[in-house]
Simulated scan of single mutants.
Amino acid sequence: MEHAKEMAALGSAVQEHALSLDDFATKGHHLWVVWDGNQPIGCAALCEISPTHIELKSLRTRKAYRRKGVASQLLQFLFQKALLLGYDRMSLSTGTHEYFDAARELYIQHGFAFCLPWEGQNKTEQVEFMTREI
């Protein structure tokens, strides 16, 4: 709910990149949730682009848990999972709005670099793309 409200405030161009729960019923989609006791505090998804290339989607940490290492630990877990699943490249799209500045910093710290969109994605003023080998 927190994430949906924040994205709605940024406009429809950001919302169109969100996944629905139905998307995870298809092959090549994986979702993980981080818990603190019985409270979900973070999540991330991986979606197959090709047999060797996977997209990071929906990396999210609840506001109260941000800047405490949750997203970094989750990214390290996802790199390991992606390798185990046979992928050697991970890419992502993120917003250009200042709201996403911290996310872009995090991705750069974890080896992602800006790139052109991959097949099926379109470059817009609201979205930029990043990638890295894993």
Rank of each mutant, 00 (worst) to 15 (best):
E16H: 11
E2A: 04
F112P: 04
H3V: 10
E105D: 12
W32R: 06
I49Y: 15
L31W: 09
R89N: 09
Q15T: 10
K5E: 08
S20L: 07
A71M: 02
H3L: 12
Q80N: 05
A45R: 00
D23H: 08
T26H: 15
Y65F: 06
S91Q: 11
Q126V: 07
H30D: 08
Q121I: 04
P117Y: 05
S20R: 03
S58T: 14
N38M: 12
H97G: 03
T52K: 15
G95C: 02
L85T: 07
S93A: 15
V33L: 11
Q73M: 10
H17Q: 11
D23M: 11
C47G: 09
T96W: 00
C115L: 13
H97Q: 07
Q126F: 12
L116H: 07
A64I: 13
L83P: 03
L85G: 05
S58Q: 06
L74D: 02
S12E: 14
F114V: 13
H110I: 12
V34C: 14
Q76C: 06
D88I: 12
Y87V: 11
H17E: 10
T124R: 00
T94A: 08
T131M: 10
S91C: 09
R66N: 00
R132N: 02
K5T: 09
G111E: 05
F24W: 03
F79L: 02
R66P: 03
Y87I: 08
L10Y: 11
Y99I: 07
Q126C: 13
T26W: 04
Q15S: 10
S72H: 01
A9R: 13
Q73H: 01
K68R: 15
E125S: 14
Y87N: 09
A9N: 14
F77D: 00
S72P: 01
A45Y: 00
S58P: 03
H97M: 12
F114C: 14
H30C: 09
G111L: 04
F114K: 13
E55W: 05
H17C: 07
R66I: 00
A103K: 14
E125G: 02
L75V: 01
S72F: 04
D23K: 03
W32S: 06
A4W: 05
Y99Q: 11
L84E: 05
A103V: 11
V33H: 04
E119I: 14
G111K: 03
F24H: 11
Y99D: 06
K123F: 10
A13R: 14
A4P: 01
A45N: 01
Q126N: 13
Q126A: 11
K5Y: 01
A71R: 00
A13I: 12
V14M: 15
F129G: 06
F114L: 13
E105R: 12
Y65Q: 01
I54N: 00
A71T: 02
A113Q: 10
L84W: 03
I134V: 10
N38L: 06
R132H: 04
Q80F: 08
L31R: 06
I134T: 13
K57M: 14
T96N: 05
G28K: 02
H97R: 06
Q126R: 14
A113N: 12
W35R: 08
C47S: 15
A82I: 09
R66D: 01
L78I: 04
N38D: 14
K27V: 15
K57G: 03
R89V: 15
H3R: 04
E133G: 13
S20D: 08
F112N: 09
A4G: 03
F129R: 04
E119W: 07
M90A: 06
G69P: 03
I49L: 11
A113V: 14
